[in-house]
Amino acid sequence: MSSNLKLIWNGLIPENPIFRLALSMCPAVAVTTSVENGLMLGLAVVFVQVFSSCTVSIFKSFIHPRIRIPAYVIVIALWVTVIDMILPVISPDVYKKVELFVKLIVVFAIIISRLELFASKEPLIPSFFDGLGMGFGFLFGLCLIGAIREFFGTGQLFGYDILGFNPLLIMVLPAGGFFVIGFIMAIFNWFEYKITGKIPTSGGAH
């Protein structure tokens, strides 16, 4: 059990998909103008990641290695279509804002890379927890960026007014997302430097 918890912790902080692996950046900047949007898309990603990890883990012996990428894409597309039908029923107005990105989960690099690196080799239970960890890491990243941008951009959190004025309007503009991610990544690097004493070589290549 402790190894499963370790898998979740691993996805949450040491291999956080957004700040450490730097995968699937598009939604991290695009939908995070408020916490609510980030939460919605994060939950969708958790769902798709967990279910496609399990599916691939179960059927891994039937997938020929040469056609594995198209096979993974089809599995992901299947679960994305399912969540794309569930979300509008749960919360129609938030869904409208993140609609395009829910459909684009198909091409999120984080999901296919976890299938390739983990679920295609490991049995069902660890794959489930790895998917859960990565999904929660993504959710955590989206919510953190969303909270910072919503608070500094509009002075609100979850739509409730806290400050009553707009301190830094640039945060909700396109440019703000890039700045916030750049600075959070730098902070993660700084923590790693303090803990391990090594200057980190940050980020994956894509």
Binding site: L173, P174, A175, G182, N189, I199, S202
Partner: peptide
């Protein structure tokens, strides 16, 4: 570049400046 900004973080800040100018 400051050590903790090396690599991707500074690239993000640059992209932010580009996004501002494309505005």
């Amino acid at each position: 570049v400051p050590a903790m900004f090396k690599g991707l973080p500074i690239a993000f800040v640059v992209a932010g400046v580009f996004a501002l100018s494309f505005l």
